[in-house]
Design a protein around this nucleic acid. Structure first.
Length: 468
RNA sequence: GGCGACGUGGCCGAGUGGUUAGGCAAGGGUCUGCAAAACCCUCUACCCGGGUUCGAUUCCCGGCGUCGCCUCCA
């Protein structure tokens, strides 16, 4: 399996640190506000990476953090007159709902920054002891120039950065490039006790400390959006490698491309965004997932309503194939399909190529079913691939439309039963009408169900329904 | 200014030195009471200019264009 490693900027064969195991750390959200469409992308992209490693038989430890203390969370809390914890909890709940809708599996561990302050303080103390950081008026700064490898991830050199660095007011820093690993508390801010007084951690230290806590030194894969390469990931590396005196901090760095909107990057700071929860309300969550997955993870992805509608239709094509023969299949997966799927995935997670293999199998499977032949091995391949992509159709349940169903049932003289049994009875009623060429009644039943999102399709051996 | 990515058919979007990606949409057909789904057929592209090559969309050079990072950001 080849993965494009940002560290070194080239495709590299993936090998795990420990035989049979993969440790992954992905930078999750700063929970300051609701998620937008861009946040869904990293979640889905790395969910598929994780699923694929699991599929290959690795024992995967997947860690995705939550940043629940930072300047903007504090600002939001002050504006709303609530605690930072309230802001963080509310936003974290919105992210969790979005992940669920997108079919993103829960992380093995979802550490919060505020619950790992001691680990961060430990790391900062190691930095100070090693001469890599210094205290200055209650703040602690990392001394960038004293760390030789600085810039190796982002491809920058210190002198170029120097010329572009913002001029700092005052002289708390020894060097303009130095960045805070600990910030002295200001009045009204959440703070923790430390050897340097009350304060809070800098942004980057949490990921260095938490990834080390759960995955150890030189873990396998560190992921995140490519906008985090500099300075966040560069600083994570510097801190962790300096503190622990061990390199590399992470062995493979994977970065997903940004979502754009009318060609411009989607970012909450500019308000140039599409609300993620609104998107998964308007379209099936897994259609949004497929929309992300069609484009290679490192490329930019432009949002459009058309693209989402396109993905929705495309997903329907997949699902309608699987509905033709529901239930488990016994056969081995079609070998060529799996080979094509794997070849694509081994090439830096080429999901688009894997999808092509899937759609080829769907076409052939459909063709065989039309011809009255067995499509078992194609159905098996479908299940195998769809599991990795996380696109399997979920049972929706009928409880939320039970009232509507009962009303339709009453209209056609069916009562005393509900939900699935009611639909079956209605379809029996409809079959009876159709056998008498009473098309009006038949169509009325179909239309009544359609209004509730229950779509009826007539086949050679009876009618089937599904909820959309 | 520095670093980096990208420019493919109506749209989205893979990939490759010579042989059909795939999806959506569109048109024609089969099936069908209608509808839906499915299958078959059609639509054959690779920003521009040089170069290398028997042959380049695919490699090299130059140009044009778009975007990202360089400040918080997935």
């Amino acid at each position: 399996m080849k993965i494009y490693n940002t560290l070194g900027r080239k495709l590299q064969p993936f090998t795990p640190r420990d035989e049979g195991k993969v440790g992954m750390y992905v930078c999750g959200a700063t929970v300051q506000s609701k998620p937008h469409l861009g946040h869904g992308r990293y979640a889905v992209v790395f969910d598929v990476v994780r699923r694929y490693f699991t599929y290959l038989g690795y024992d995967v430890m997947y860690v995705r953090n939550i940043t629940d203390v930072d300047d903007k969370i504090i600002d939001a809390a002050n504006d709303a007159g609530v605690s930072t914890q309230d802001i963080a909890d509310e936003a974290a709940a919105a992210f969790a709902a979005a992940y669920l809708a997108l079919g993103v599996l829960p992380a093995d561990i979802e550490p919060r920054a505020t619950e790992h302050i001691p680990q961060m303080i430990d790391m900062i103390e190691m930095l100070i002891q090693g001469g890599h950081a210094y205290e200055s008026g209650g703040d602690v700064y990392f001394a960038v120039r004293d760390f030789p490898g600085y810039g190796k991830l982002s491809g920058r050199n210190i002198d170029e950065l120097q010329s572009g660095a913002r001029v700092e007011v005052g002289d708390v820093k020894r060097d303009p490039l130095d960045f805070a690993v600990w910030k002295k508390a200001k009045p009204g801010e959440p703070s923790w006790s430390s050897p340097w007084g009350e304060g809070r951690p800098g942004w980057h230290i949490e990921c260095s400390a938490m990834s080390h806590e759960y995955l150890g030194t030189s873990f396998d894969i560190h992921g995140g959006g490519n906008d985090l390469i500099f300075p966040h990931h560069e600083n994570e590396i510097a801190q962790a490698e300096a503190a622990l005196d061990a390199a590399p901090f992470a062995r493979f760095w994977m970065h997903n491309g940004m979502m754009t909107l009318t060609g411009e990057k989607m970012a909450k700071s500019t308000g140039h965004i599409i609300d993620l929860l609104e998107a998964v309300e308007k379209y099936p969550g897994l259609a949004v997932r497929l929309f992300y997955l069609r484009t290679h993870y490192r490329k930019p992805l432009d949002f459009s309503e058309d693209a989402l509608a396109d993905a929705t239709a495309s997903l329907e094509r997949l699902w309608s194939f699987r509905r033709r023969q529901p239930g488990p299949v016994e056969a081995e997966s079609h070998p060529e399909t799996i080979a094509a799927f794997r070849a694509a995935m081994e090439d830096d997670i080429d999901v688009a190529g894997g999808l092509a293999a899937l759609f080829d199998a769907v076409r052939e499977g459909n063709r065989r079913l039309d011809a009255g032949e067995s499509a078992e091995e194609y159905l098996a391949a479908y299940d195998e691939i769809v599991e990795v992509f996380g696109l399997a159709e979920q049972e929706k349940g009928l409880d939320d439309i039970a009232g509507g169903l009962a009303a339709v049932g009453a209209r056609f003289g069916v009562d005393g039963i509900s939900n699935g049994a009611l639909i079956d009875a209605l379809l029996a009623r409809r079959a009876e009408a159709r056998s008498n060429k009473d098309w009006a009644t038949g169509d009325a039943i179909r239309d009544g169900l359609a209004e509730l999102g229950i779509f009826v399709e007539d086949g050679a051996d009876g009618s089937a329904w599904h909820r959309r």
